[in-house]
Design a protein around this nucleic acid. Structure first.
Lengths: 208, 208
DNA sequence: TCAAATAGGGACGGCGGCCCCCCTTTCCCA
DNA sequence: TGGGAAAGGGGGGCCGCCGTCCCTATTTGA
């Protein structure tokens, strides 16, 4: 059973990270710490397999590179047997390199950290031992959500909107189907259902 | 049907905010914009009822109070008919007051912005017209998540762990039951089920 | 022009979450 | 010492999501 610690002060982000980890790991216990002090207390009382660190905690000078690295170093030292991932809102290649020297296994910018990316990073780490995802400078498009869609419908709609132009829908169905382990015809069904719901409400986003 | 825009660069946070809004609003279409430019394009093409703004976007100097306020002002000007909510990682009372002068209806710090708080803020706004939630300086305890629990079980477990000490479990059952509109006996059932699952895995967090 | 792709439906079973009702045993304290 | 609180478990109904299979028009492209 995996023991995981997420150190992040923003409640919704902490919850989102925990949710992401739940999705890509099997049986696991996940603890969330909003401050460094609480995290240290937890690390003293038990060992963790994986520790996520956001060095931008309250009480840390956000401009001081030294303070940020100090937080990371303290956490790594307090849980030497764990795999460490730094998740930060203000990421830089230089800081990523510093972290690597501390023994951190992954460095991820929050901008561009979309659903499923954490799983990729963990995959990378288990294979090559290290993974860095710096925030992209260019941002893509808006995302579209409608409260009347089910999870699957929303997911497939997102994939369809993000498809490369010129790509046939049928190809997308097959691609998605393979990825999520579902019959392409079923994917097609969901897509049509989602589309129909949006049409009935009179709103179709671009790319559909 | 509500038209909502969420301007936030961090993908997971944007998704979490959208999820929160979905939970506390009925029929709604929610658009997510990772940059100010994309947001402006969207606001030009349609009207929104509600706009959430994170002024800490990439390209904005995080130290410059002027830049942050400029972002907010631009968004408010571009969607004059909407209700505006500022959601920020680095909040201050001074900035909240500035925002209020711009016509912003709510100002919320990301730290302490837990599940359901956005609903409270919207409630406040619909009643008194303005709501501010500055990040608390003191942080409470760690949160505990186990992948084997269902949503309800996790939710009720959280409430139980956060109860004031000395409070009887039975009282908590009644309190939760009333809040979520469920029979207290059912709440008790869920709590016991959650507890049993944790015991079988050998892990009981503090406060249980 | 003919086939493939696309749009738009209907029906069905399985599964799991959610909610309610019922039962017993143990423990603590007023 | 009796009663309430707590622990622990079983069953059943309801509903929504998921996945599958099947059907028919219309459009598009080679």
């Amino acid at each position: 059973m995996q023991q995981i610690l997420v150190i992040e002060d923003q409640d919704l982000m902490r919850l989102a990270l925990i949710q992401e980890l739940k999705n890509c790991l099997a049986e696991s216990v996940l603890l969330g710490a909003p401050t460094l002090d609480i995290a240290k207390t937890l690390m003293r009382s038990q060992d963790f397999n994986l520790v996520l660190i956001d060095p931008g905690l309250p009480g840390v000078n956000p401009i001081s590179q030294f303070d940020r690295l100090s937080v990371i170093e303290q956490v790594v030292d307090a849980s030497p047997s764990a795999t460490h991932l730094v998740i930060t809102g203000s990421d830089s290649v230089a800081e990523a390199n510093h972290c690597r020297r501390f023994g951190v296994a992954g460095y991820v910018g929050k901008t561009g950290l979309m659903r499923g990316l954490l799983a990729e990073v963990l995959q990378d780490i288990s294979q090559s031992g290290f993974s860095v995802r710096i925030s992209p400078t260019d941002q893509f498009a808006a995302d579209f959500h409608y409260s009347g869609l089910t999870g699957r419908e929303q997911e497939i709609l997102d994939c369809m909107r993000r498809r490369e132009r010129g790509m046939k829908r049928k190809e997308v169905y097959e691609q998605i189907g393979e990825r999520i382990g579902v019959d392409p015809a079923t994917v097609e069904k969901y897509y049509k259902q989602a589309r129909a719901k949006l049409l009935r409400r009179g709103r179709l986003p671009d790319g559909i």
